[in-house]
Amino acid sequence: MQIQMYFQAMFASAQTPVAPPIAKPISWRLFASVVVMAAALCGCQLRADDIHSSPSVLPVTTVSVTSPTTVILPDSLALTPVPDLPQVPDTLRRAIRRLHAALGPAAADLRPTVLEQACVGYLTLHPTGRIERAGLLAVADMDLPNTAKRLWVLDLRKARVLHHSLVAHGEGSGQLRATRFSNQEKSACTSLGFYRTAGTYDGIHGYSRRIEGLDKGQNSNAFDRYVVLHAADYASPKYIEQHGHLGYSRGCPALPPEQFKEIIATVRVGSMLLISGPGLASRWLDGQAAGRRFLARGWE
């Protein structure tokens, strides 16, 4: 009814005393506004697949229907700032900067503050025995869009990038970028925090590796949720070419079919994985403990 009244008012405004009523042409902007208003009134929702039918179209997250010049806002590409961790000694902070520089072009998109999170967590966790693999860590920056290679596997002692790949996030976490995270069963969300890699098995996704969440309240249900490292066709460059974005898992950090075997083999049992993103909080981000460990043993 509101749409009908809107058109009646618009056509009435086009009448003049000396000529038959003629409707003014509807501009594409006005037409788009009306369509959006109709969708809102009918309670319609667009599916993610409909939104991404063209690689040039970004997912819709916010629609304003408060004015005729309705603006449809795309999924933002503006990253969430990651603050420096408190109480990290200058000696360690300088060492992390040197490491980042030595990693070279493959780590150009690895934000120094996210690398700092991973290094501090590794140095804090390793002495506790919760991770056994020395000198190796994997870090995924889930704040980056899923079209970016946002997973790195690093050799700390040799300052080398061993693997750099795409990685998918859970369908409950967002569209182009992950913005929601959960530890709950059936949330289909990615869970932030530190993980220990566990054993491999052959499951519905083929060769896979289990991971154990080490942050109570953030990822401690990952093992029971069967959040695992596995291959997925929707986590491949080819999928991006076809759809303009990666597909979504049920919370697993799914890997490209071309790289998953090598990555899973490298992060063997007892390795550390950090899944970083907005809102990450962990007891293992202990700058003082990490600084003491680094002074005593370096990256060992």
Rank of each mutant, 00 (worst) to 15 (best):
L285G: 00
S282E: 02
E258S: 15
E258K: 15
V36G: 09
I264K: 00
Y234R: 01
G251H: 02
A32V: 08
Q218M: 12
S53P: 05
E132P: 06
C252Y: 00
F11R: 14
R293C: 12
P59A: 11
R111S: 09
K149Y: 11
R250T: 14
D215H: 00
G279K: 01
L46G: 12
I131N: 03
R210E: 04
W152Y: 01
Q218V: 14
L85M: 04
N221Q: 13
G287Y: 07
S220F: 04
S271N: 03
G213M: 00
I51Q: 13
A289R: 11
I264H: 02
A178N: 06
M1P: 14
Y207W: 10
D202I: 14
H169K: 04
P256L: 04
Q2L: 11
I263V: 08
V114P: 00
K216Y: 10
V18R: 13
L274H: 02
N183L: 04
H163R: 14
Q2N: 15
P25Q: 10
L229E: 07
N146D: 09
A290M: 07
P105Q: 01
N183T: 03
G291P: 02
D202C: 14
W284E: 01
D141G: 03
E171S: 14
W299A: 00
A281D: 12
V267F: 00
Y248R: 13
G121Q: 05
Q175N: 09
Q15W: 11
S13L: 09
S220Q: 10
L166H: 06
V114M: 01
V34S: 12
Y201M: 02
S220Y: 04
L229Y: 02
C42V: 13
L154F: 05
F294D: 02
E241C: 07
R47W: 07
G193M: 02
H245P: 05
C119I: 11
H164E: 09
